[in-house]
């Protein structure tokens, strides 16, 4: 209906104009990235840093087994919450701010399609999320390295030699694993899916706050999808579920992304190895969500009156 509906008559004109131009999209992405950076979004890294130090101090003060494990759990948990919040909050303000400031008018009055605009915005946020994830990972690895050393010392002091040697070997081989990095990759992927979801919602929402609230609600509901799905599939005693609840649960299963599938770090932290194909599937699923959200967001946005 809008930009992409060029008939043959238009195509004759459009010799120089590409339907989708990477150059324009990149300009928007780079600008979004720069704008967010200059808005000091990375200051939250300071909070994350303090959080890491605080966790370390707290863990150190409680002499208990499994300090390394605790540090890992808390840090990975913090990373997944921070990236998720960053994704939702940073994305939610992009469109409303452009509309409020009327910069959206000046951008779309240039030969830029709304699809390019959306892709550019999402790419900009993705770049922010990537940098944030890398920074957090670096800080996390430093902390983890320190605690690995301490854990080994503790084991040498407290365990019987035969057990200690095995436990130390396990700590050494089980801390910086490829699964851990895969898990961090999943955290990053999840944050992009959250960003895509938020962008889609902001394509029809009328306020920043509405977008944030709805996005967080959907993400939270996403963690309940496995429960909802088990009702659908029926093996877990569904006879007692009233009809309206069943309908609601089915709606959740269909419209809400299963966030539990992206929540592998809780298990990875315990040292369970995840096959590469699981990561590939999770990434594939994430990419699917992203494309669908982008497309639906564009459908909402293309018809929207500005």
């Amino acid at each position: 209906m809008t930009t992409e509906s060029s008939g043959p008559a238009v195509a004759a004109h459009a010799s120089a104009h590409k339907l989708f131009s990477l150059r324009r999209t990149w300009a928007i992405a780079a600008n979004t990235f720069r704008d967010l950076v200059r808005q000091k979004v990375f200051y939250f890294m300071l909070v994350f840093g303090l959080f890491l130090i605080g966790t370390s101090l707290l863990t150190a003060s409680i002499s208990f087994q499994g300090q390394l494990q605790t540090v890992m759990d808390v840090c990975l948990g913090a990373m997944s919450v921070f990236t998720m919040l960053l994704a939702v909050l940073a994305t939610a303000m992009l469109l409303p701010k452009d509309m409020e400031d009327r910069t959206l008018y000046t951008i779309l009055a240039k030969p830029v399609s709304r699809f390019e605009y959306l892709v550019g915005k999402l790419a900009g946020v993705t770049m922010i999320l990537l940098v944030a994830t890398l920074l957090m990972t670096a800080a996390f690895l430093v902390v983890l390295y320190f605690w690995q050393g301490r854990e080994i010392e503790n084991l040498q002091l407290t365990e019987m030699p035969e057990r200690a040697a095995a436990a130390i070997a396990k700590v050494k081989s089980g801390t910086f694993t490829s699964t851990l990095f895969g898990g961090i990759g999943v955290i990053f992927f999840r944050s992009i899916v959250c960003a895509g979801l938020t962008l889609m919602i902001s394509c029809f929402s009328t306020s920043w706050l509405f977008t944030v609230i709805i996005s967080l609600m959907v993400i939270f509901a996403g963690y309940l999808v496995p429960m909802a799905r088990s009702v659908w599939q029926g093996p877990l005693g569904t006879a007692e579920v009233p009809t309206h609840t069943a309908i609601l649960l089915r709606l959740i299963t269909v419209f809400v992304p299963d966030m539990q599938l992206f929540n592998v770090v809780d298990d990875i932290a315990v040292g369970i190895n995840v096959d590469a194909d699981v990561f590939v599937r999770i990434a594939g699923l994430g990419a699917g969500y992203l494309l669908v959200y982008l497309f639906v967001g564009w459908l909402f946005f293309a018809w929207r009156e500005l």
């Binding site: 496995p226 539990q260 599938l261 929540n263 369970i272 995840v274 599937r281």
Partner: peptide, 15 residues
């Protein structure tokens, strides 16, 4: 995928 992860013994947690 949930089943697959269950098999790898990921996500043994059930709310």
């Amino acid at each position: 995928l949930e089943q697959r992860m269950e098999n790898t013994r990921l996500g043994g947690f059930k709310p």
